[in-house]
Amino acid sequence: MKRTIKPAARQRIESWHPYAWQIQSLLLGYPDDTPSRTALAERVAPVLPGQVREPLLRFTAHVRAVQPDDLAAAYVDTFDHRKRCCPYLTYYAHGDTRRRGLALLRLKQAYARAGWRLGEEELPDHLAVLLEFAGAEPAAGHRLLTEHRAGLELLRLSLRDTGSPWAHLLDSVSATLPPLAGDQRQAVARLAAEGPPEEQVGLDPYGLDPSAPPQYLSAPQAGGPR
């Protein structure tokens, strides 16, 4: 049976969506080029609606107020040392299980169908990678982000609970997506109470150094698939 989208989950993709997703992608990566990324975000911000723009600017204001080394240390402490602040979205639904390996493969195949190649140093479910893909391929990217809405919401709540400045960015990302549906709210509540599945398996060929910055997508080759 063909799966249909419920009316409540539909959302029109606006002209500003790709700009928001690209900027959010840059700011959610490892902060190794923060001044230029911050300046670019602040130039793009005026074209974004308030609920997307304001949390974005709260984050850039924080970035400007801290030293780069302190920001980098906070990034590692937040995203590499706290399981509930994991930026790899399939982890929330599947944990370290065999089903996660299949979910990662499915994402990589979605990128390939659109003609994009992922660097070998990064997993395809890193939120920064998903957002960059959405910025380049809005329809397909919006669908993938919506499919991972529950995990994204749990990440947002976890960052807020820890007082992390990256919670502002997740507020901005969430404002680009449809509100949580009833089953998604239930999934968030269940994940918050129980955590992801705990079956431990290897994820080769998806191993990585967790302290490495995201490696973004390579553009389609001329004449290649789109």
Results as ranks from 00 to 15, higher is better:
123 L>R: 13
28 L>R: 01
69 D>V: 14
181 A>R: 13
86 C>K: 00
33 D>S: 15
202 G>N: 01
216 Y>I: 03
131 L>A: 03
87 P>N: 07
11 Q>T: 14
18 P>H: 08
96 D>R: 00
45 A>S: 11
113 R>S: 07
30 Y>S: 06
173 V>L: 06
224 G>M: 06
191 L>N: 01
49 P>K: 15
3 R>C: 12
100 R>Q: 00
217 L>C: 09
106 R>S: 10
8 A>W: 14
38 T>E: 03
35 P>D: 06
159 L>F: 06
50 G>Y: 10
90 T>D: 03
3 R>Y: 09
208 L>G: 02
78 T>K: 07
156 R>V: 04
127 L>Q: 08
123 L>V: 13
24 Q>T: 05
99 R>G: 01
154 L>F: 02
164 S>Q: 05
196 P>T: 08
107 L>R: 03
53 R>P: 05
31 P>N: 13
50 G>W: 12
60 T>P: 00
130 L>Q: 08
170 L>P: 00
24 Q>C: 10
52 V>M: 06
68 P>Y: 15
54 E>Q: 08
24 Q>F: 07
218 S>L: 15
196 P>M: 04
43 R>M: 12
136 A>V: 01
105 L>M: 12
217 L>G: 08
141 G>V: 06
128 A>D: 04
153 E>W: 06
161 D>P: 00
186 Q>L: 14
60 T>N: 03
95 G>I: 00
218 S>Y: 11
210 P>C: 01
13 I>N: 06
217 L>R: 07
185 R>L: 11
51 Q>H: 14
20 A>C: 08
113 R>G: 03
211 S>P: 00
221 Q>G: 13
112 A>Y: 04
120 E>V: 12
65 A>S: 15
215 Q>W: 05
118 L>M: 10
8 A>F: 14
70 D>S: 11
218 S>W: 11
129 V>R: 01
143 R>W: 02
94 H>N: 06
59 F>G: 02
203 L>V: 03
220 P>A: 15
34 T>G: 07
218 S>R: 14
159 L>K: 02
190 R>D: 13
132 E>W: 02
201 V>D: 00
56 L>Q: 03
159 L>S: 02
118 L>S: 04
19 Y>T: 07
176 T>R: 07
73 A>V: 09
122 E>P: 04
220 P>H: 15
198 E>W: 02
2 K>T: 15
25 S>W: 00
71 L>G: 02
32 D>F: 06
